[in-house]
């Protein structure tokens, strides 16, 4: 896919997010769990960003595996780009969730909420990845970072399972409950928009690094 196509993807994503914002502000219910408050609308971004961000971590694990097998630096940079963008998305998830909780639960943070705790642990795991990955750019660091990403991906499901044991669920499931009336179109648009912006951001970051690599190779030849 050429670069113009990637940009169109990003632009389409932004349009979908704008449309989603339009529908949620004009047509969607602001009452969640019996509480009527405009901050409830943050749900439409919060869930989409969380889903797409976590899905991107799967892509990062696949890219890391591909890097260890093929040793093509492109895969290592793809994994890095996915994790960097997912990390930003998880940060947004934590921030939007925290803002919502401030108004609805009257608390910025609840240790009893397993999803908050899980997201925070995952945030720390991938923060460590980014710190490690960016200390130097050579194959040895790329390989170690890829291993870390794969091991992290083994750890995440067990972390989710263990936080569930740790606390009985407080943060209810987001969809399919009667106490939440979701505007289907606004949510679908938000998910599609986020789903389009994500690959655009990943591709942008990936391409920047590839170009930097090429530049370095050209300079080395000169």
């Amino acid at each position: 896919m050429n670069w113009i196509a990637w940009r169109s993807l990003g632009a389409a994503g932004l349009l979908a997010l704008l449309a989603s914002t339009f529908f949620m502000t004009t047509a969607a219910s602001r009452t969640f769990y019996g509480i009527d408050h405009p901050v409830n609308l943050i749900f439409y971004y919060h869930v989409a960003v969380a889903w797409v961000g976590f899905a991107g971590l799967l892509l990062a694990a696949l890219a890391s595996g591909a890097y260890l097998v093929t040793r093509a630096p492109g895969y290592s940079w793809l994994a890095e780009a996915c994790i960097a963008v997912s990390f930003a998305f998880i940060t947004l998830t934590l921030a939007t969730g925290s803002v919502w909780a401030r108004f609805i639960w009257n608390s910025w943070w609840e240790w009893s909420d397993l999803r908050l705790v899980t997201a925070l642990v995952v945030w720390f795991i991938y923060a460590a990845y980014l710190v490690f990955r960016h200390q130097a750019q050579d194959g040895a660091v790329h390989a170690k970072a890829a291993v870390f990403s794969l091991v992290a991906f083994v750890s995440v499901p067990i972390t989710v399972a263990s936080t569930r044991l740790w606390q009985s669920p407080f943060h209810g499931t987001s969809l399919g409950t009667d106490s939440v009336d979701i505007h289907g179109l606004a949510f679908a648009l938000s998910l599609i928009g986020t789903g389009l912006v994500y690959p655009y951001l990943v591709a942008t970051r990936w391409r920047t690094h590839r170009l930097a690599d090429e530049l370095e190779a050209i300079e080395a030849q000169a």
């Binding site: 795991i125 460590a128 710190v131 200390q135 130097a136 170690k144 291993v147 263990s162």
Partner: peptide, 24 residues
């Protein structure tokens, strides 16, 4: 530990790499 050792930051990086992974 092996990762931290071979990093520019050395063993100070170990808690950062290890602790989130061993939360379970």
């Amino acid at each position: 530990t092996v990762m931290a050792r071979h990093s520019g930051l050395g063993e100070t990086l170990l808690p950062l790499l290890l602790l989130p992974l061993v939360v379970p």
